[in-house]
Computed example of a mutant assay.
Amino acid sequence: MNLMTLTAVIAPLHLRSCLISLQGELKFEYYRNDSTATEIAKINSCTKSILSSLICIAMDQGLLPESSSKAAEFFPQLGRDTDKRKQEITIEHLLTLSAGFRWTEFGGQNSFPKMTRSPNWVKYVLEQPLAHDPGTHMEYNSGISQMLSAILVQASGISTAQFAEQFLFGPLGIEKYHWETDPQGIHTGGFGLQLRPNDLLKFGELFLHGGVWEKKQVISHKWVARSTAPVILAEPPRRGGYGWHWWTDSFPLTATDGGLPTAMDYYYARGYAGQYVYVLPEIEAVVVLTQDNKRGKNNPPVDVFREHIAPLLIQY
């Protein structure tokens, strides 16, 4: 990897941070200023992938049933709804954002802002009508993530943040964080978590190594593999697929000797305004990117990973 080239490319992009590890060794570390490395900052929807890992840990512990279990076991009102399809919504449908609720995160119905202005976020989500049969269509929906956080609280008997401290943050040595809550005190499942860049790198490394951290199995390999595998196509204009609150995609490689094109698969956590944790199992790499500069529709942010970092990684 030509680190001098990468530094020159990243400098004008005003990233907060860029960290790259290969085979467990930190190969590249960039911070906009000296304080960025130690300051916590919003990771926005990367929170969803953190929550997914907590759901997996709860399944490992037997606190939660298999992903095929019905969400109505935790929210009886789904079973009483006049739309009987709501009874068929499973935990996996929630994890893959394919429960079928009629929802527009921003714009149109503006569902997300309406939820955050409501007195009870989970109740607001549950009351939304279905636009699709469960499991047939992905619709980006942070309200569903709030349902999952509420499920974790029911199953564990403690808050989502307390569960994270005991079974994820603690093992990884993550000590500094902040996590927002809804009006009922349930920690936000789809956003609202603040972490340091290096702690995001630890999270990516945990998944790269099959749920093992410092020789301890934090998450079973079974759920690491299951949660990061594509289950459903991402909704346009987003590309790739979607797993259990993880995005999946591939990067094209040069043609093989036989002339057939090949690609390198990867999965990633993604948050608004440029927060990313990329995991590339084939080359044992983790990439963390954080930003805080917002750009309008007429000036979209550069896809730093695909345009600048991935081409260097595959040559390393």
Rank of each mutant, 00 (worst) to 15 (best):
R270Q: 10
L63R: 13
K86H: 09
R295G: 06
L6V: 13
W244G: 04
E307R: 15
E66S: 14
P113M: 05
A99M: 03
P134H: 13
Y124I: 00
T116L: 14
Q61A: 07
T116S: 05
P119N: 12
F169C: 05
Q128G: 07
M264I: 02
Y316Q: 14
P113K: 11
M147W: 09
Q291R: 15
Q109C: 04
S69P: 05
S111C: 07
T256R: 14
S45F: 08
L206W: 06
S45L: 07
T262P: 04
P171C: 08
R16C: 05
G135L: 01
H132D: 04
L193P: 02
Y124K: 00
L200F: 04
E88V: 05
L172N: 01
V288M: 03
G185C: 08
H14W: 10
K176A: 08
G173D: 04
V279Y: 08
D292N: 15
L195P: 02
S159F: 01
V304H: 05
I283L: 04
W223T: 09
A225I: 10
Y140P: 06
D249M: 09
I232A: 08
L195S: 09
L168K: 00
E105W: 07
H178R: 15
A150K: 03
R16M: 09
K294D: 05
T228C: 05
Q61M: 10
H132L: 08
G241L: 11
E282R: 13
R270I: 10
I151G: 01
S45A: 04
R196H: 10
L168E: 00
L195F: 00
F106N: 09
P237Q: 03
E73V: 06
M115N: 11
K297W: 08
Q315A: 12
Y267W: 07
L19Y: 02
K123A: 15
V153D: 02
D182Y: 03
W223F: 09
V153T: 11
Y272N: 11
I314C: 02
T36V: 15
Y140L: 09
Q291F: 10
Y177S: 05
Q128S: 05
A131F: 01
H137Q: 12
M1Q: 08
L253D: 08
I232H: 02
K297L: 14
S220H: 08
G210P: 04
K222V: 13
G185D: 13
K123C: 09
W121R: 00
D83I: 07
A285C: 13
L148S: 00
L233V: 13
R85T: 03
Q87H: 13
K114R: 15
Q275C: 06
V125E: 05
L201R: 10
I309D: 00
V122F: 03
G190F: 07
F305K: 02
E66N: 14
K222H: 14
K27P: 04
E88S: 15
G157W: 01
R32V: 00
M4V: 10
P237N: 03
